[in-house]
C-alpha cells in the first residue's frame, strides 16, 4: 500500500479523488447537519422523511438540483455568469491540498502552505462578486457590493492575527506549525498565554473574521434572504446554485481546518500520551477539532440575528483592527523586550 502510494501519479490521483470526495460529502452532510441543528434550536424535528432520521435527504436534494434545467436569464453577462460558479469552487479545492489532516496525510506539504491558502482563498471574493454583477439583478449587485466591502474589511484583521501567530512560530509550513504545538492542549497556540496574554482573544478575532469571510450569519450580508432574496445567487438555478452552496460549505470546512491548524494543534492529541498519538490518531483528533469548530459556526448562525451592515463594518474597523494591531505590537514587545533588557543590564 505505501509502496503504491509512493508512485507519484497514483499519489496525486488518490489525493485528488480523496479531496473531491471529502468536499462533496462534507457539503452534502453539513447541509443536513445544519438543518438538523436549526430544527433542534427552533424546537422542530428538521428533515426526517427521507431515510431513517433524514439521512437520505442530501441525495434527494442533489437529485433535485441535478434534474433542474440550467437556465441563463436574458440580459446577463453570459460568460461571467457561467464562470463565477467555477471560480468560486476551485479555490477551496486547491487550498485543501496543503492542509495536513495527519502528520503524513497531506497531499502536498509546501513550506509556504499558509500563504498558499490565503492567496487562493482571496479569489473567492472575486468570484462571488462577479456572479452577483453578471446577473444584472439589483439584488445581486447590492449583494456583490456588500461582499467586496465586507471581505476587504475583514481580510485585514485576519491577516494581522495570522502575522501575530507567525511572529511566534517563525514558519509558514502548516505541518511545522502543528509540530510546534506538541505536548498537550496547554501548548496549543490558543492557550499559549506566556507568549502573548491576548492569545485567546486572537483566536476569537480569527473566528469572527472567518465567519465574515465565509459570509456566514450573523455576517451573511451577501445572502440575506429576507432582504435580498438570495443575494449574489438570486439568478442562479439548479446546479449553478448548488455549486455556490457547495463552495460556501467547502469554505467553512477550509476555514475550520485553518483554525484547527493555527490555534488548536491540528493533529496533536490534547493529552501527551503515547497511546493517544500516532499516525492513526492524528486524523481523528484533527477531524474532531474541525467538526467542533464547524458545529460552533452553525450554532452561532442559528443563535444570533443578522447584524446591520454598519454594525458589521464598525466591528471590523473600530474594534477588531485596533485590537489585532495591539496584539501584534504586544507580541513583538514580549518577544524582543527580554533581549533588549538583557543587553542593557
Amino acid at each position: 500500500m505505501s509502496n503504491l502510494l509512493s508512485i507519484e501519479p497514483v499519489r496525486i490521483l488518490t489525493y485528488l479523488v480523496g479531496i473531491c470526495a471529502f468536499v462533496g460529502a462534507n457539503a452534502a452532510y453539513l447541509v443536513l447537519a445544519e438543518r438538523k441543528i436549526a430544527g433542534r434550536i427552533q424546537r422542530r424535528p428538521g428533515p426526517n422523511e427521507a431515510g431513517y432520521g433524514g439521512w437520505m435527504q442530501p441525495f434527494a436534494d442533489v437529485l433535485k438540483l441535478f434534474a433542474k434545467q440550467v437556465m441563463i436569464p436574458p440580459g446577463t453577462d453570459i460568460l461571467l455568469y457561467c464562470a463565477a460558479p467555477l471560480m468560486v469552487m476551485a479555490p477551496p479545492l486547491m487550498c485543501l491540498a496543503v492542509v495536513p489532516f495527519g502528520e503524513s496525510l497531506v497531499a502536498r506539504n509546501l513550506d509556504i502552505g499558509l500563504l498558499f491558502v490565503f492567496a487562493f482563498g482571496s479569489i473567492n471574493v472575486m468570484a462571488l462578486m462577479l456572479g452577483g454583477w453578471a446577473s444584472r439583478n439589483k439584488y445581486s449587485i447590492i449583494s456583490a457590493a456588500r461582499v467586496v466591502s465586507q471581505n476587504v474589511a475583514y481580510e485585514i484583521p485576519m491577516l494581522l492575527v495570522v502575522i501575530t501567530l507567525l511572529m511566534v512560530a517563525g514558519t509558514l509550513d502548516l505541518n511545522e506549525l502543528i509540530r510546534q504545538q506538541a505536548g498537550g492542549f496547554w501548548n496549543w497556540n490558543l492557550l499559549r498565554v506566556w507568549v502573548n496574554p491576548l492569545m485567546p482573544v486572537t483566536f476569537i478575532i480569527f473566528f469572527i473574521c472567518m465567519l465574515a469571510e465565509t459570509n456566514r450569519a450573523p455576517f451573511d450580508m451577501a445572502e440575506s434572504e429576507s432582504e435580498l432574496v438570495a443575494g449574489a445567487f438570486t439568478e442562479y438555478g439548479g446546479m449553478g446554485f448548488g455549486v455556490f452552496f457547495m463552495a460556501e460549505y467547502s469554505n467553512i470546512v477550509l476555514g475550520c481546518c485553518l483554525g484547527t491548524v493555527l490555534f488548536l494543534g491540528g493533529w496533536q492529541s490534547p493529552l501527551p500520551l503515547a497511546a493517544l498519538s500516532g499516525p492513526l490518531w492524528g486524523p481523528v483528533w484533527f477531524l474532531l477539532k474541525m467538526y467542533a469548530l464547524i458545529f460552533t459556526v452553525m450554532l452561532v448562525r442559528w443563535t444570533f440575528p443578522r447584524t446591520q451592515f454598519y454594525g458589521l463594518l464598525n466591528l471590523s474597523w473600530k474594534i477588531l483592527i485596533p485590537l489585532s494591531l495591539f496584539s501584534l505590537l504586544l507580541t513583538g514587545a514580549m518577544m524582543k523586550l527580554p533581549l533588549v533588557l538583557q543587553r542593557l543590564f
Binding site: 482571496s122 471574493v125 472575486m126 462578486m129 481580510e155
Partner: peptide
C-alpha cells in the same frame, strides 16, 4: 485578491 477587487 486586493488590487482587482479594489478596481471592481
Amino acid at each position: 485578491g486586493a488590487v482587482c477587487v479594489t478596481i471592481i
